[in-house]
Structures are given as C-alpha cells and as structure tokens.
Nucleic acid binder design. Structure first.
Lengths: 129, 129
DNA sequence: TTAACTGTATTAATATAAATAATACAGATG
DNA sequence: CATCTGTATTATTTATATTAATACAGTTAA
C-alpha cells in the first residue's frame, strides 16, 4: 500500500498519518471505504499494531476516518462537521509558511499562481444528508 | 524577549526557532543585528545553553542567521544565497497544507484571498553587494 | 597581556517520548 | 462457535530531547 521509513527521524505514526491523509485527500480512498485493519496493516508494514492504532486514533480525532469496534475503520464523509480546531490550525500553518516564503523573496503573485495550479476536489452538492 | 513553554510537547529548541524566525521575518530584528549570546539567552529563559546552541545551529543551517566564533550570532542578509533545500521544503509544505484545506471544502478563492491580505516585506532593490 | 566576552565541541547523565511486546475484552460476522 | 474487527492496558526497550559540566579558541576592551 505504501512504504514507511523506520529510520526516519519523523515518528512512524506520523508518517502513516501523512500517507493515509494523502490517499484520502487525493481521493484514492473514498467516503466510507474501509481501511486495512490495524493488525493486517501492522503485518504488511512489519511494524507494531499499537503504532497503527495510534495513527488511526489521531486521524479519527482530526476527522479523517471513523472507526466502528468490531467492524473496522473507514474514510469519513467530508462535510460531516469539519474539525474546527484542525481548520484553525491549518490556517495558522498556512500563514506561517506563506509568511516565510514571502520573506525569502518569492513574490506574492507567484505563491498565488502555484495555488491556482492546484486542483479543487470535485464534489456533488446534492448529497445533503 | 519571548516566552517558552517547557511543558509543551514541541521541543524547546523548535519553539525557539519559531520565535526567532518570527522576529526575523516580521523584521523586528534586521540584517546583521546581533542575537543574544547563547549564554545570556540561556540565563534569561532559564534553559540549558546547549539547547539554545542547537536552535542557533539549525537556524544557521536554514540560512536565517550566521555565527562568528568569538563575536556572536547575527541575522543573515536575506538575498544571500537562499537555502534551496529549505525553499523546496517550504513549497512542498505549502502544497500539502493547501491541499488539505481544499479537501476540507474551503474554496480556492478564499485561500488566495487570505494570502492577498498578507503583507509582502518591503525591500530595497539598490543594495546590490 | 589579561579578563571577560563570544561560538563551538564533547561526553555523561537524566527525562521524556516513541515503539515494541504480550495480552485481554467486547462487538460484528458468517 | 471461530474469526475477524477496534480498543485498552501494562511493561519493556529504544530513541530523542534536555540538562550538566567542561574545555578550547577567537574577539574585544581595559
């Protein structure tokens, strides 16, 4: 499914979160799709189940997945009460990074251009639950 | 000068780096201005000199400050060979964060609006060394 | 030159966090 | 019932961050 660098200084569970988020954001994994179980993924990546569990727990807390005991873990539907803390954190991070980029001399226009090349995810409007 | 949260889960040296970068980016501290010495700052913040040293070392590696043994540590002039690794890392981080924000349903226009409200640092063009 | 600064380096000890390991429990499913 | 799922707990090991105590060399001013 993906690879983990056990020697990296960034913790395994964080790497896992990034990779999984990537799959969710790029919509490789879609709403309500089941994630590999804690044990299966642990075996595939040859890392400890507890580490997977930690990553899943965090992703659930951030609103990216939801878990049902006995059934499994699944990708969260996007619009369901976006985590406000997370949104606030992202806004701050964005400001920090753009601030740093501007300081380093990259003109604002270029930053905006970069963002304009990025794709907005397509989404149905009609699916109001 | 600033405050450090020793109980925070983010390492002290990272907090220090953020705070100092903030001062440099907001141009509270200007080119070639001297930073407090390792020992003085350590005493002020009541943390270990080695921790300050670590932060300074990293900031130097990222191109934000330069140190002269026996003299002190100073804010780097901005245009002097921007750290390309760092620029690349910032670009990637930007893409990651904006990607996540877009995924969460914030329209691209709004992200761009936010960036447009940010101030570009003013800089002389004539000072070509 | 001496005294008091500066950054830098090293080595050891301690504290905190991450990761592994071994289980256990309860819900879901066929 | 057997086997899958998530979740929780406790202990141990390993890695990282932090402190501590020095040492050395360059700078600066008295």
């Amino acid at each position: 499914m993906f690879t983990i660098d056990t020697r990296s200084r960034t913790p395994i569970y964080e790497q896992l979160m990034e990779k999984l988020k990537e799959l969710i954001i790029r919509e490789v994994m879609k709403e309500d799709e089941q994630l590999p179980s804690v044990r299966v993924l642990a075996q595939q990546l040859t890392i400890n189940p507890n580490t997977i569990q930690k990553a899943y727990r965090e992703l659930e807390h951030q609103g990216y997945i939801y878990s049902i005991p006995g059934k499994g873990s699944f990708v969260s539907p996007v619009k369901n009460e976006i985590n406000k803390e997370r949104m606030e954190m992202l806004r701050k991070e964005l400001e920090r990074i753009v601030g740093e980029i501007l300081y380093l001399g990259v003109p604002k226009d270029e930053v905006i251009k970069l963002i304009e090349t990025m794709e907005e995810p397509e989404r149905r409007e009609d699916k109001n639950d």
